[in-house]
């Protein structure tokens, strides 16, 4: 079991995860941000590596991707930064689109993950056949977890497939939506309840549109926890990052 799987065993409820874009607001903010998030008792951390064309993302994350690329962030630089991170107990997840990974080469990418404390990866545009062909075996050798997305329009037989492929958690997308939109739990109640049944026994984390104590708590009623991305990145905007800045945000969510 890796750190992420242990976390789900130890603490099955109210997990809070924070997503941020590597290289934003400043190129060298990646490592300090990880350390501040650890100190703020976030349960696990998702590091996004930037892509020029983030199809599933709304304006906030589009802007952080753009800024990070302008700042000079690349996937190989991110691994270089991560190699300077002292061992941490908080699970780390890497998230990003497939193209930068293809350019690095899939074996090299997975090797780099295994050398840099990465416990799971999320690639929103990775098809199952590619996962099976090029990722699955090596990931299990390196003990890196797989995470797949489900949405309100994911058909039932596909849910089953996702359940089978998942070794980390299922990323429950709160709505048919890009990142950074508001979520209407009333509208999604049936979808979320249905997932509790269909994906019983599989850790579930809700993301997209979680931004305040209310949406976080509500999400936790339907899943093991939630991921906050856009709201956190908006909080960082125009600021010099500091432990206080990060702690303020986490406290404002956990209350």
């Amino acid at each position: 079991m890796n750190k992420l799987q242990q976390l789900f065993q130890k603490k099955p409820n109210n997990l809070l995860s924070i997503f941020f874009t590597a290289g934003y607001p400043q190129l060298e903010d990646t490592i300090p941000l990880i350390q501040y998030l650890c100190k703020s008792s976030v349960d696990f951390i998702e590091i996004g590596f930037p892509f020029s064309d983030p199809l599933a993302d709304g304006p906030t994350i589009q802007a952080t991707n753009y800024q990070a690329i302008q700042n000079g962030m690349t996937l190989s630089l991110l691994f270089k930064q991560l190699s300077s991170l002292p061992p941490i107990s908080t699970p780390l997840i890497l998230m990003g689109y497939l193209n930068p990974i293809l350019q690095m080469g899939i074996p090299q990418f997975l090797h780099n993950c295994s050398q840099n404390q990465i416990d799971a990866i999320i690639i929103p545009d990775l098809p199952f056949d590619y996962y099976e062909k090029y990722f699955q075996k090596t990931m299990s050798e390196y003990n890196i977890c797989s995470v797949f997305l489900v949405t309100p329009s994911t058909p039932p037989d596909r849910l089953n497939q996702i359940k089978q492929f998942t070794t980390g958690f299922v990323y429950v997308v709160s709505d048919n939506s890009i990142t950074g939109k508001n979520i209407d739990f009333q509208k999604q109640k049936k979808y979320l309840e249905n997932l509790q049944q269909c994906l019983e026994g599989v850790p579930k984390i809700i993301g997209f549109g979680i931004k305040d104590p209310l949406s976080f708590q509500t999400a936790c009623q339907f899943a093991n926890g939630a991921i906050i991305g856009s709201a956190f990145l908006n909080h960082l905007k125009n600021h010099k990052i500091s432990l206080e800045l990060v702690q303020n945000f986490i406290q404002s969510i956990r209350l």
């Binding site: 930037p50 892509f51 020029s52 199809l55 690349t74 193209n99 930068p100 293809l102 350019q103 545009d125």
Partner: peptide, 21 residues
């Protein structure tokens, strides 16, 4: 271009070594 993925398919793309289009 080099092979890569944009807009849902794998094809030739003009992109950086890091895979930015």
């Amino acid at each position: 271009g080099k092979k890569g993925i944009l807009h849902g398919s794998l094809s030739y793309l003009i992109q950086s070594d890091d895979g930015q289009i």
